[in-house]
Nucleic acid binder design. Structure first.
Length: 654
DNA sequence: TTAGGGTTAG
């Protein structure tokens, strides 16, 4: 009678068991006695009508017929009959798939209505339903009422808080769970890792994972790569990935060995298939994570390696998008465009990524042309696409185009301008010299301007050397983000320039009180698939002596060609003592010098840095690109500078 | 029989 077969259409499930063919009334009666255990009919004969009701309910639940199942549920309620937990969980899944919140609540009410607490797994299913409906309070209530919580119950809540970005709750639940003697598993760790926003916490979690031996789980590993890279710990992210690749390699090698050494290839072939099945989805997602890590550090060479892996797998839209973004962010527009044109399927993210890629790399016209193509293709632009378009306008100083899109975005695409759209417009107006209009726009904003908005205005003041407005904007920034060291220094430079020494003192004091420290300038350059980091004033690089020698030679050569270091950067976040001398040792200059001495001339020197490039370094790179006939790409947190033949793709407008 | 992953702007 008992069947281990999975549910198929010709099998009738009752109480989680499966029967073929019609059930006899007698058998049904017997089964229903089980089903209504804990009800008034326990140990009594069940009326045949009730058996039929249960039979109907079960059938509708398993065939995912939601309206009929809900009708049958009402009949069960009327006759005070309860079905078994597995059937209810099927019904809940059905509610979830259809977004049927009211029906889901009704099932919840019903399963609790006989006065008994449903089985743990059923409560877990209900909890998960509320989580997926984003009804966290309801899920939490259920959790609080549970008398017996297992690892799934805890993990469901942790995952819920983690994806709702209520990170402290997720971490707190992990502690409580351990205190309750429930051991976290790979599901728990992969969820809680995403709620980790502090490096020491992350290290602790990583240790626990290693201790219990869960580090080989692809989900856990993928989360580790993701979180390390989000925290800027790229080396750790890469280590985690490399270990994984090595472990993969082991499996692959064993298969190849199996093929080669064993003439009986059937077994090996089976293993190969099984591995592909197991690896497919895992690897596509994991590779996306890894690509993101490459993208955030502009690791073009490593990204290319990952690309080679990607080619082995089935085409996947998200993976293609990640690849596209990687090439854009590494400043390699040719490859990005090639991938874009070869994509079988493109969604709004593919188009947005390519448009933003063109815009960031200084090809604003191309970005706008592509936007027109997108409209023709029938894909509807979203919030971020429009942002990319405005971004393209602001980076090329296309005031009229920008104003047109900004004013018509609601009418044309049904998108209300958000804070970020206003930010782009402030940037566009401000940098084209229309500072008054930019201020007016900030005043008109429907949402409150934030520190980023004011920082945008400050950037424009910097370009147009408007000290008064810069002072005002800087004050607003400090009000909204008291930890922004760069702005304090900038403001104190303004005060110093205008001889307001008391204000300078006040500012220094409040910086000290608040413990604000300036982030040191740092540049990264990739040489032979290795990342070299250079921090101003840090001499720990093993070749630092040769690098400094090279840098001095370069500077000497440039001076011969007429280069004069530009120290007039009162509106840069430089400290007093950082005048000409220290300007010469900005981290990007050191990184460029290292690139010149370690990469052959035909290779592009690609640098990423954590602060915006200063005017002097910009000039330095332009001249060097001309004199040494080299191509240099410097990526700062906001945009890209492609230096070639003495000009920069930004047109000196940044 | 319930729980976990990937892409886009500043």
């Amino acid at each position: 009678m008992r069947s281990v077969l999975r549910f198929k259409e010709n099998l009738i499930p009752v109480r989680g068991l499966f029967f073929s063919g019609p059930l006899s009334p007698l058998l049904l009666q017997h089964l229903c006695c089980y089903s209504v255990a804990a009800t008034q009919w326990q140990n009594e004969r069940v009326p045949i009508k009730c058996s039929n009701l249960l039979y109907e309910f079960t059938t509708y639940c398993y065939s995912r017929d939601l309206p009929r199942a809900m009708q049958a549920l009402n009949s069960l309620q009327k006759h005070k009959i309860w079905a078994d937990a597995v059937t209810y969980s099927e019904l809940i899944k059905c509610c979830l798939a259809r977004g049927a919140v009211e029906q889901g609540k009704r099932v919840h009410q019903h399963v609790f209505s006989n006065g008994y607490e449903p089985k743990t797994f059923l409560v877990n299913t209900l909890m998960n339903m509320y989580v997926k409906f984003k009804m966290l309070d309801e899920a939490q209530d259920l959790f609080d009422q549970m008398s017996d919580r297992n690892v799934v119950s805890w993990t469901t809540m942790i995952a819920a808080y983690s994806s709702a970005k209520i990170n402290n709750k997720a971490l707190e639940f992990l502690i409580l769970m351990r205190r309750d003697d429930v051991r976290p598993n790979m599901f728990t760790y992969s969820s809680v890792l995403r709620a980790c926003d502090d490096l020491s916490n992350l290290r602790q979690l990583h240790c626990s994972i290693l201790k219990v031996g869960l580090e080989s789980d692809v989900f856990v590993r993928s989360a580790l790569i993701d979180v390390y890279s989000k925290m800027g710990q790229l080396e750790c992210a890469m280590c985690t990935f490399t270990e994984m690749v090595t472990w993969d390699l082991v499996v692959w090698n064993s298969i190849i060995g199996g093929f080669a050494q064993n003439s009986d290839g059937d077994e090996a072939l089976m293993l190969f298939k099984r591995m592909k099945r197991a690896g497919f989805s895992a690897d596509q997602s994991t590779l996306s994570s890894v690509l993101r890590a490459c993208t955030s550090l502009a690791l073009l060479e490593l990204g290319r390696q990952v690309h080679v892996h990607v080619v082995k797998f089935q085409r996947d839209l998200i993976l293609d998008n990640a690849l596209l973004d990687m090439y854009c962010k590494c400043g390699n527009l040719e490859d990005a465009h090639q991938i874009f044109t070869q994509m079988i399927e493109k969604d709004v993210i593919s188009w947005s990524t390519m448009i933003i890629g063109y815009a960031q790399n200084g090809f604003s016209r191309k970005a706008l042309e592509l936007f027109n193509e997108m409209k023709v293709s029938g894909i509807k632009p979203n919030y971020i696409t429009v942002l990319g378009v405005l971004f393209a306008c602001s980076h090329a100083g296309l005031v009229e185009d920008g104003q047109y899109y900004f004013h018509s975005m609601k009418k044309l695409f049904g998108i209300d301008p958000g804070r970020e759209h206003y930010g782009c417009m402030v940037d566009l107006l401000g940098r084209s010299g229309k500072l008054d209009e930019a201020v007016k726009l900030i005043r008109e904003m429907e949402c409150e301007p934030d520190a980023v908005t004011w920082r945008t205005l400050l950037g424009a003041c910097r370009v147009h050397r408007n000290m008064d407005l810069a002072e005002y904007a800087a004050k607003q920034i400090i009000k909204l983000d008291p930890s922004d060291a760069g702005t304090y220094i900038l403001l104190s430079n303004i005060y110093a320039r205008t001889q307001k020494w008391e204000d300078v003192e006040d500012l220094r004091r409040s910086m000290k009180e608040r413990g604000v420290k300036k982030e040191p300038g740092c540049s990264w350059v990739e040489v032979n698939k290795q990342i070299h980091a250079f921090i101003m004033g840090d001499n720990s690089h093993p070749q630092i002596k040769e690098i400094n020698k090279e840098l001095n030679q370069i500077i000497w050569k440039l001076r011969e060609a007429g280069y004069v270091p530009d120290t007039n950067f009162v509106l840069q976040d430089l400290e007093d003592e950082q005048m000409e001398d220290s300007l010469l040792y900005h981290s990007e200059k050191i990184a460029v010098a290292f690139g010149v001495m370690s990469l052959s001339r035909e290779k592009t020197i690609r640098i990423r840095k954590n602060l915006r490039i200063c005017g002097d370094c910009h000039l330095f790179a332009k001249l060097l690109a001309q004199i040494e006939r080299r191509s240099i790409v410097i990526r700062d947190p906001i945009r890209y500078h492609h230096f070639q033949d003495g000009v920069c793709s930004c047109g000196d407008y940044w």
